[in-house]
Amino acid sequence: MVQTVVDAVRVFAPKLPFTVAFSGGADSTALLLACAERWPGQVQAVHIHHGLQAAADDFVRHCEGFCAGLQVPLQVLHVHAQPAPGESPEDAARKARYKAFKALALIPSAQEAIKTIVLAQHADDQVETLLLALSRGAGLPGLACMPAAWVRDGIQYHRPLLGVHADHIRDWLAQRGVAYVTDPTNADPRFTRNRIRAQLLPVLQATFPAFRETFARSAAHAAQAQTVLAEVAALDLATVGNPPILAALQALSYARQANVLRHWLTGTHGTTPSTAQLQQLQHQIAACTTRGHTIHIKVGAGFAVRRGVLLDWYNPKALPTAAATPAKPG
């Protein structure tokens, strides 16, 4: 069912008070306006100044004026969002935002509202995320797309507009006569999301008018399946051990072994293996039938190694030189 902004906020039940992440663009403007009208005096806003374009200071001034009109407190946070070599500007900006939110929430005098942050991603954003995941050959975690609610660094995040179309948001603002800023980078074809928005979404709309709802349903199915796999992986990790016993890993089916290895690497070591790396690791595990067989291969940001009867993992950049040398098989 297609939602309006008002419908989405009406069924939204956040812990009060809370903070809206406010860029000044159409989506966050609609979200902040609807929330401020429903919960007057219970909403504040936070604006992230990324420092990446000349218009950023103008965005701040717009946000200050808009929040003053709503009588909504506004905090402006300045972040360093320059991408590292090989990192996309979008990823760098996203990481900088979450880092800023975390730092804000850790301030001893932080208001209770900072513990709940509401974001304005909508149905079209969800479709773009799914298409990007498919283009990368992502597994279930990627196909599950953006969750409507989750906890990160002790902060509760919500996305109440995931069922609302982008066009509906802009139409609602136009009906209200509400102005918003337009980020010039949103029209830059160098960014994949912009090409999807400008070239693919119109074709999908013409061919499959209900694609936003059906894509969202597929993402929800993927998220549910991933939840089950995570539960199975947690049970299997308790059986094979942490770090895992090689013989116990060999007793699992290939798919279940891959599932628990991903769970162990991401959950314990915070690293994500590529499909090729995981396949190579599983090949080495299967071949590890003698005391003399060694394992020392690149997996994620470090190396998977054999240490006696165990499979271990380490990041040489995070360890002293002596500790970074893998133990001999035993």
Results as ranks from 00 to 15, higher is better:
N194R: 06
Q226K: 08
D183V: 15
T227W: 12
P209Y: 02
A198M: 15
L229N: 06
T182I: 15
A230N: 15
R193H: 04
Q224V: 10
T182W: 04
R195T: 13
P202H: 12
T227V: 10
T185C: 15
V232C: 08
Q224N: 14
P189D: 02
R190E: 03
R197M: 11
F215T: 00
I196L: 03
N194W: 06
T182E: 11
H221M: 13
A223F: 03
F215S: 00
V181G: 03
Q226Y: 06
P189M: 04
A198V: 15
N186A: 14
E231K: 09
E213G: 01
R217Y: 13
A198F: 12
A230H: 13
R217N: 15
A187Q: 11
A187T: 09
A225G: 12
R197Q: 11
E213R: 00
A198L: 15
L200T: 12
T214P: 08
A230I: 11
Q224I: 11
A225K: 08
R193L: 03
A216W: 00
L204S: 00
V181Y: 01
I196S: 00
Q199G: 09
A223T: 06
T207D: 08
Q226C: 10
V203Y: 01
V181D: 03
Q224A: 13
F211N: 02
Q205T: 10
R195I: 12
R217I: 15
F208Q: 10
F191M: 02
V228T: 11
Q199D: 13
A230Q: 14
T185L: 14
Q199Y: 10
S218H: 08
R212G: 00
L200M: 11
